[in-house]
Nucleic acid binder design. Sequence first.
DNA 1: GATGAATGAGGATTCATTCAT
DNA 2: AATGAATGAATCCTCATTCAT
Lengths: 208, 208, 208, 208
Amino acid sequence: MSTAANSDVKSTRQRILDSAEHLFADKGLAGTAVRDIAAGVGLNAASLYNHFAGKEELYEAVLERGLRPILELVSELVSEESPADADERALDRVVLHLAQHPNLAKLVQYEALAGGERLVRIGGRWLEPIYSRGLEALSKSKAEERWTPEELPLLLVAFQNLVLGYFAMAPLMQQAFGLDPTSDEALQRQMSFLRKATRLLLPPREGL
Amino acid sequence: MSTAANSDVKSTRQRILDSAEHLFADKGLAGTAVRDIAAGVGLNAASLYNHFAGKEELYEAVLERGLRPILELVSELVSEESPADADERALDRVVLHLAQHPNLAKLVQYEALAGGERLVRIGGRWLEPIYSRGLEALSKSKAEERWTPEELPLLLVAFQNLVLGYFAMAPLMQQAFGLDPTSDEALQRQMSFLRKATRLLLPPREGL
Amino acid sequence: MSTAANSDVKSTRQRILDSAEHLFADKGLAGTAVRDIAAGVGLNAASLYNHFAGKEELYEAVLERGLRPILELVSELVSEESPADADERALDRVVLHLAQHPNLAKLVQYEALAGGERLVRIGGRWLEPIYSRGLEALSKSKAEERWTPEELPLLLVAFQNLVLGYFAMAPLMQQAFGLDPTSDEALQRQMSFLRKATRLLLPPREGL
Amino acid sequence: MSTAANSDVKSTRQRILDSAEHLFADKGLAGTAVRDIAAGVGLNAASLYNHFAGKEELYEAVLERGLRPILELVSELVSEESPADADERALDRVVLHLAQHPNLAKLVQYEALAGGERLVRIGGRWLEPIYSRGLEALSKSKAEERWTPEELPLLLVAFQNLVLGYFAMAPLMQQAFGLDPTSDEALQRQMSFLRKATRLLLPPREGL
DNA sequence: GATGAATGAGGATTCATTCAT
DNA sequence: AATGAATGAATCCTCATTCAT
């Protein structure tokens, strides 16, 4: 089966995206050399241009490929009819996905620091409904008791920072604390931590 | 007196640091050209080398100059004998400082993403006491009721992300929400938001 | 018959030659990319190498294909036994041919500027008899009254420049004067101009 | 005296222009490598960018430097109050200048073939008065007897081709005839040839 | 202290060409 | 006969750095 084959023999395009994702996440766009991306796949730098129009386009492809599942995930969860523990389930799944794709968070942080224009462009379709429904959901919950409507965007950003920041700071934590934040154990702890924090910051839903 | 003169006419060294801080915060180390830093001060790139040994050294000087007040601030607050509302006061002052130095948060985030080695090197002296005293303080408080000792580092990292993330994401928020996160109004809201969040995440101190 | 088919469906080889001729005439050898030649025929660059050994060989093939009819034309006219108005008829026919193949003149000019080695190589067989007979013809005519034998080569070059230059300068004339030098009207005028110039520069033949 | 010094120690900028002019004239814009231009002055390619913004800008500077004297020359001659033998004197001086700057003609021919946009841009100020006064002068002369007003532009272009073509075709003539068209002797012959041709093509002025 | 000029290293990208399919 | 993919060489250009002035 071709799908089976693909799982083994990744297309060159995918392998380039892998290598690029790794390097962009580690060193950022400006800090990454096209030659190094190619070398990561055992390719000559020129060969890269048979697959992508240029560094910028490759970068955006990496961003898009990394972002899509997250956006779909969140979008999907947000669109459900506010099930009881939607928040925590959303957090869990996003964190799990990020844990399996450790480059993603750093990629997003780098992009946000650089202005986030591409982030907005790529996530455009998703961002709007996510944020609006997110706000709506929050305002329907008892969160109102704790947060004014003006503060709700801040809350969203805070959660984003909480989740992404953990992974983005991973290298620093490793250096400072000497522990590996991507180990299964550490991830379990972070997920439980986030769940607690969510309960503290967001009051339980009406239904409960 | 030379100090009087300096208040008006910043030393070239300081002006270079200003220009460098601005660019490094916006584009990161790799994304910033020495020539552009110099141009920002109306200097030739070569002149820069009369003041700093090289790009790397300049970068570290920027980092050090930006970090020192923050570290001193935190260090100072932490060293007090756990006054009642030390946490909130610390947050307020740090946020205020960051608000007046909007490049700082981005600088730190860029550095953390890049591995944070310089951060650890520069903040080395400070970091250890801060974190250990922070943990100690937390463990003495009723935080224990909510957070296990293993979770306390996560809590510290979480606060760091909450505080720094707000500023680092500023350009993105501007793009996505169309609001200026550095306006006085927005800052007031964020500070009040952080205070609330602190109260929710950290139980009030024993004394209260 | 294959010839019949060819009249409708040009062979790929011919279509490649067409595309190459167009681009080489516009941008010169160095300025033309093999890929663009291929694209002009809806082909992949690699496919070109099924038809020609390389860029250089393709270029020479273009040159040869373009030059042959001209050389044959001139050669034929020159070889006639000095008919009365051979000069003017030769000019007319060459100009007509060039008008129908507007790339040719530019191709030749580019080549001449680049040293003309290929021109000499390709036209070798023809050039010698043409020039020698041309000179002979001139010296037999009353041109002698106006031009010394040493000047006759200059006269030949002058005519070449007059004829080729008109087409080679076409883009410039269009830019400078805003008129299209390849329109039927413009061509008529140029031909009549050349005829007049010929009469002025070359005295009528003896026979007349 | 600084002028004396300059004649000996040409500024690097001038030497770059010299090297570039030489190569551009021989191989055209696309065929010339920046590295080779630099090597012609004993410079590293990077050093070139301390003097010119890029290859294109250097090319235009070469063009401008080469064209200016010619344009001023022609413009000056044209502006005189139609002295008896203005035409011939103009031709002589232009030819002499071109003879001393053998790259110029080729440079212009290359440019014209490539579209002549830069030629029009650079020569813009001059071209208009030159052509309009040229036409005016011709129409006042008895040229009318031989050339219709519509043919006058063709006459101008013809002279341009006659003059420039001689030098542009120099390498080809050398190959084909084995004679050096830039020798003093050859130049004398060409100038005398052009004078004769001028007299034949243009009837003597009214005054005569 | 400042700068114009120089440079080696390296940047992204293009190019002509090859080859397996 | 056509092509996608690969590549070494070469393209223009930028960069951080040095140094004489």
